[in-house]
Every structure is written in structure tokens, then in C-alpha cells.
Design a protein around this nucleic acid. Structure first.
Lengths: 215, 215
DNA sequence: CCTAGCAGGATTGGATCCAATCTGTGGCTA
DNA sequence: TAGCCACAGATTGGATCCAATCCTGCTAGG
């Protein structure tokens, strides 16, 4: 049903994530394996393996003999994720900034260009992807693979909210400016400035999302 | 073959973890599903689901159409894990120490008693369990479930080494003392002292393990 | 002698089928 | 009327079977 993938579990994993993030699967609702497998055009086996991954990421919960349920994220959970991101991204930046090469910065500039283009066009799908590519290109320069993995999980867990955040044009304009601050700090090879810029970046989004989540 | 469990995947998961931790499954070697499934007396389905969980925890790696391989941890990986633990456990302690009740402290004293008993008897299996129970009883008081989850993963990833560490009587004697320092800091409701005590606790083990790992 | 290509076996990925467990409903009893 | 038990349907858990892919060793050609 989607782009080809070496294995069905991967394809299902992507679709499942998208469906959870976009709210197609209501938070708190049970994941009925049969119907979902049918929806994705596969059997239950690869679906279950994908669910096990999502369980590890905290996007779904699992109760033996009762099944999987879409996680519902609370304000507390959101703030906890951002607190952890704050700690861990600071560490990644400390490790990354000092080792940045000129080629790295050139690459980051290119990625940022894609972010801004998607942002301008209002293409939320590609904006989400480009934004993530930009930030993780930085984090990966830390040469701390396990740290990057944990950060991936934390980002995955809040993709739902990021999509909401990007919907507003005001927010999109703001992140463009914040991204340029980040890049400037990286250009100057100033770790503390980069950490501070990220702090601002995150605190804005968690603030907006927190109030929006309280409805 | 083991204690009963509501589902086979859970039982397999425990056995698999033990076999990896104890080195029965050599690091770097491929996990041949058929033979392992036979070994545990189940089919390949629950085994694969258990492997997906371990993949999420970083105990095994997965390559599509090639299978799962037991992760081999390098010194770099070990130090990275401990660096992350340092950051995250400090955060957990900051959140936990201030809210500790007298009952909590009583419970911790009980858990520590079990640790020391197992340590004295040289029962490594129950020592591993009791040690973990003690430390996570503290972390869980942070009321930050996601943080606890990440810490669980980090601990899981280095269980292999912890088992080695406990083997030496000298090390066991040392951790008993370190645990008492931790408990004293908690008794005093002094977060910074607790963080410092943990720092000492970790740095000893990472130091010993690091040299031992370099063989 | 070295390399490309091609079987054959081994191993994983996925689908289908059956067993085990849970959930909800209705009837019975105190 | 409230509570408990039994039964039926739904749903998950696990086993077996088949298809797709990968790896190994051999062979043929340069």
C-alpha cells in the first residue's frame, strides 16, 4: 500500500507511527491487530513486531492477553520528555560542537535550507522530516550513538505534538529564526551558545504545546 | 523449562537476557532463531518478539533478512552508558530526594539489607536482582516514569558487565560501603550528597570494568 | 591464478491455522 | 435488587508451513 520496503514490519512501523501521530488511532484506544493488519494489507505477525518496537518507544502500552493500547500523553509526560531532552541534547551539543568541520556546517546549512523551504510552503509532512534531519545531523556529530538513540525515542514520543506545533504559521516563522540562532552558535563553535539557543527553541514549543494540550 | 509466565515471550525474554548477560551467547555471534527457539522449547514467533524488545534496548542488533546479532559492547560504549547514567540519575535523584517519606527510607533500608545479604553469601544472581531493586526503588521516587524507563534500558545494556563486577569479593565489599553512603545522604534528604555518592559508586565500577574490558 | 557467476543449502520473513485467555451478557440465586 | 456464575463471541498468543532472501562453495572463463 505504501513505498516498497525490504521488510513488511518496517513499512507497517512507519504507517503505524504516522497513524498514531496524526491521531487516526485515538489515544487510549485498543489496537485491534486483525483489523489493522487488514488495513495495512499484511498479516498480524509483522504488525506485532512493529508494535513491540513502538512499545519500547513508549508510543503504545502492552497488557498480556489484552493487547496493545495507544498511549495517551499527558502534560506531565510532555514536560518530562522536554526536561530529558534538555539534559541530553545539551550533552550531545557539548560533544558535537567542538568537533564540527567546515563540511559539517555546510551540510547543516543545506538541511536548514530545506527546513525553511518546507516551512515557507507550509508542507508539514516534509517540514517534520527536514526539521528532524537538521537537528539530528547536529546530534550525530556527538559520536555518541546511544545518546542519539535515546533522543530518537524521545522525539518519536512527541511527534504528535510537533505536528500540531508546526500547523501555526506564527510558530513556523519563529522556529526559522531560532534555527538561525542555533546555526550561528555552531558557526562560532560556541557550545554554550548552542545549548542556550536550543533551550530557547525547546521552551517555546513546550510552552505553546502545554497550554494547547490543556485545551 | 522455567518458572511459569503468562506468556512465552516474557519467559523467553528473561532467558535470552540471562544467556546474553552470562555470555552463553557470544557477543557478535548471530542469533539463530530456530536453534534458540528449540532450546527454549517454543516456536520462533515469541522468540522474535523478545528479540525486538532486546533490539530496542540495544542488547542485540538487527539486519533485515540477515537476522539478529548479539551486541558486542566496546569501552567507548561502556563509558557512554555511564556518562548518560550520570546525567540522568542525577536528575532522578534531584526529583526524588526531596519527596522521600520515612516509609520510603524504611523500605530502602530493607532492600539494602537484601543486597548485603546476597553480597555476603556471594549469590550473584540474587545480588544482581537486589542491587537493581534497591537503586530503582530510589529512582522511581522521582515520579518521572519515562526517565525510569530510559534508565532501565541503560542498566539492561550493561548487565553483562555488572555481573562481572560482582564476581570479585573486593568489589562487593566496596559497593556495600558505597550503598551506605547513598542511604545516609538520602536519610539527610541531601540531594547533592546523594548525587555525589552515586557518582563515586559509578566511577568505581566503570573504572574497574573499563580496565577489565581492555583485557 | 584470480574473479564472476551460479547453484544449493541455510536462515529469515510472513501467512495461516489452532489454542488460550479475556470480556461481556444473560440467567440464576440469595 | 444485587451479586455471582456460566457460556459465547471476540481477541490475542503461539505453532506450523511456505516464500523470499542471503550466504557458501563450486565452477567456468578470462
Amino acid at each position: 500500500m505504501t513505498a516498497k520496503s525490504p521488510t513488511a514490519q518496517e513499512a507497517v512501523l512507519r504507517e503505524l507511527r504516522a497513524d498514531i501521530v496524526l491521531g487516526v488511532l485515538a489515544p487510549g484506544s485498543q489496537v485491534v491487530q486483525e483489523s489493522l493488519a487488514h488495513r495495512y494489507g499484511v498479516s498480524r505477525v509483522p504488525l506485532r513486531e512493529a508494535l513491540k518496537i513502538l512499545e519500547g518507544e513508549g508510543l503504545v502500552t502492552y497488557h498480556p492477553h489484552r493487547g496493545y493500547f495507544v498511549m495517551e500523553l499527558s502534560v506531565d509526560d510532555l514536560t518530562e520528555v522536554y526536561r530529558l531532552r534538555s539534559l541530553l541534547e545539551a550533552e550531545a551539543l557539548r560533544a558535537a560542537v567542538s568537533t564540527l568541520t567546515d563540511e559539517d556546517l555546510e551540510q547543516l546549512r543545506g538541511l536548514l535550507g530545506q527546513v525553511e523551504q518546507s516551512s515557507g510552503e507550509g508542507d508539514l509532512e516534509s517540514l517534520t522530516i527536514a526539521n528532524r534531519a537538521f537537528h539530528f545531523a547536529i546530534f550525530e556529530r556527538s559520536a555518541m550513538p546511544r545518546l542519539v538513540r535515546v533522543l530518537q525515542q524521545l522525539w518519536d514520543a512527541t511527534d504528535v505534538y510537533r505536528a500540531i506545533y508546526f500547523r501555526s504559521e506564527v510558530n513556523r516563522a519563529r522556529i526559522d529564526g531560532e534555527h538561525r540562532h542555533i546555526l550561528a552558535a555552531l558557526d562560532a563553535r560556541d557550545p554554550e551558545a548552542a545549548i542556550a539557543a536550543h533551550e530557547v527553541h525547546r521552551s517555546h514549543s513546550v510552552q505553546v504545546l502545554g497550554t494547547q494540550l490543556a485545551e
